[in-house]
Design a protein around this nucleic acid. Structure first.
Lengths: 350, 350
DNA sequence: CGAATGAATGAAAGGGCTTTCTGAGTGGAA
DNA sequence: TTCCACTCAGAAAGCCCTTTCATTCATTCG
């Protein structure tokens, strides 16, 4: 059964007591109590220098690493936070995640990743992790699930929402103002001379999608323009949905002169569809996106879009979470970061 | 000091003993021992049905959630694995991560994320997490650090490498064959009639970059073509490095008819540079990439590239890790997945 | 010189769960 | 009826740390 090619590290160590070295071993070796060893590790200032040295030497000699699980149990804290993401593969979310991670690491926290794959059930599942004490807090980059359930958890544990928010909730949130962002985008389109403007939204069961749509309507209303209902279509943020919806406009024979897409991915899909019909962007139809993905500047035409400060959203969210965890008072529970219109080449001035 | 706008959930619960309910509370309520409660939760088949019901009812009533930390301490396992990534923002890695996550979740594991931001020091830091027992195993998507250190850890803990490997190491690995992939790519270029071919490599301190370069040389040698040394330049996988290196070729007045870039990002940079000089791809210069990012098919011209099965790499890595954790024998310690040449529009047949 | 102070350390009690060992109870075979 | 075998459940011993409380010892002051 055994084969030279088998890889089994535990065999290599043989049955020689690989015994995990514990704090007692160190204590014994250094001739002190476990209490002292623990103190050396966590409050060195309370231990005499000579003792500290002895202990450190023993730790070194035994290559001792404290068992964090035991510490966590004792201290009832994990120094871990949970981040729930709808799709880690989406560069926008991974950038937010990176912002979170950056400050987490700086503050000595680790991050447990929960990718829901856009599945509400899995999203719910992650709620338990807090109650099971596997994390000290959580930041949600998605909030499609039952709002009450989230509220419930947030009542007993530190929770912050990033990007999305829950209507009527007091759970701390950091995001941009999607309404004003979308309004700004649409107004730019109007100011560029467009009147017949289409909107491809995100999934409307998400607040943030509704907000962007709301911003669109607001801008149109302010400018006294009429929105043709067929030109408002619900996508799912994906390239494909942008492509398909634009094709639908073609099929319907209903062409706007400009389209506001609620994500850069969709905007690119829209543009591909337009090109596939032999038309040009922005000459024939203008397109404006949302997110400012790295790729949007590389794309041709380079996308005019609303930039979200993804990394900063992550940073702020984590900082907020830290305050919650440390039971500091948090004054503003809604942090709104500035978005920005990035003008590139996909919108034409008429 | 207090303000109506303060958000402080612990205030809402007041000082009413929000007391964490523990297994003893359940036991008391159900009139059984803690042992029985534990058994209901973990080996229900050993408990009489009527008892089980009582216990379940108590659990329900108290909304009891077992403290996983305590369980972990007792069982000496965390049901958590650590994934160390050089940059989560890179869609290739996030896709691998997703593969890992998918099988992790399926097997009841959680994933702790370690993003190193391409920093070797941070990479090293994550090694400790295993020894500190915060994770049962780890998969490394990067292995720039001291090989000996990794080996050392891998001797006592389950570790698998994904994408990269360590030369001469027996640590289980899953990846594609970068040498043959690059060779295949280069040969395609040659077979398309190109002879003067440039290569833009990844950072050469990474094995995988060296392998791709090696594949390039092998193909050129097999086809009896001469490699002009100035046409081989070291990039860092980024769009910018591709752009800059191509500009360097222009500055040098040394133009190849085709370029093999070791990443799609770089390939796109190269193409942008070519376009910026008023030349066309593939008409004037052909470009071939590596990775097959989602974006590569959207890019114009659509990139001809080598596709890596990122998600599958992740899946396989995690499955391998599971075997290691469960101390099953692993026969093959190197799993090579198939890469694939995806022909699109960026290479011209002469 | 004795008492009071303070610093440094140790003993021991958990933190919340799992699991072994043991005992109680039940039913069946002799 | 006695005994065995078996099932189910409880007592209690940890898992490995941290932290409180107590103790020791040296120092200072009256």
């Amino acid at each position: 059964m055994k084969d030279v090619n088998d890889y089994n590290p535990s065999i290599e160590t043989g049955k020689e007591k690989t015994m995990m070295v514990g704090i007692v071993d160190v204590a014994k070796k250094a001739n002190v109590s476990t209490a002292t060893v623990s103190r050396v590790l966590t409050k060195p200032e309370t231990v005499r220098e000579t003792t500290t040295e002895k202990v450190l030497k023993a730790i070194e000699a035994l290559n001792y690493q404290p068992n964090l699980i035991a510490r966590q149990l004792r201290r009832l804290e994990t120094k871990t936070i949970l981040v729930v993401v709808p799709d880690i593969t989406n560069p926008f979310f991974s950038k937010v995640l990176r912002g979170i991670e950056a400050v987490a690491v700086a503050k000595g926290y680790q991050v447990l990743l929960g990718d829901t794959g856009n599945d509400v059930e899995r999203e719910k599942g992650y709620l338990n992790i807090l109650q099971q004490k596997k994390a000290d807090g959580m930041v949600l980059l998605t909030a499609r699930m039952d709002a009450a359930a989230v509220e419930e958890v947030a009542r007993s544990f530190p929770v912050v929402l990033a990007c999305e928010y829950i209507e009527g909730s007091r759970i701390p949130t950091v995001s941009i103002d999607n309404i004003s962002g979308a309004r700004k985008a649409t107004e730019y389109l109007v100011d560029s001379g467009h009147e017949r403007i289409g909107c491809i939204t995100g999934p409307l069961d998400i607040v943030l999608s509704r907000d962007r749509l709301k911003g669109f309507y607001q801008a149109m209303a302010r400018k006294n323009l009429i929105v043709d209902p067929v030109l408002v279509q619900e996508g799912d943020f994906s390239f494909d949905s942008g492509f398909n919806l634009m094709m639908k406009f073609f099929a319907l024979g209903q062409l706007p002169t400009a389209i506001f897409a609620a994500s850069d991915d969709m905007a690119m899909g829209v543009i591909k569809a337009i090109k596939s019909k032999g038309l040009k962007v922005p000459e024939d139809i203008s397109v404006l996106g949302f997110d400012n993905l790295k790729f949007s500047s590389i794309f041709e035409p380079a996308l005019t879009t609303i930039a979200q400060p993804a990394f900063e959203i992550g940073e702020n969210a984590m900082e907020l979470l830290m305050k919650l965890i440390n039971k500091e008072e948090v004054k503003r529970e809604q942090i709104i970061l500035a978005d920005q219109l990035v003008v590139r080449e996909s919108v034409r001035t008429i």
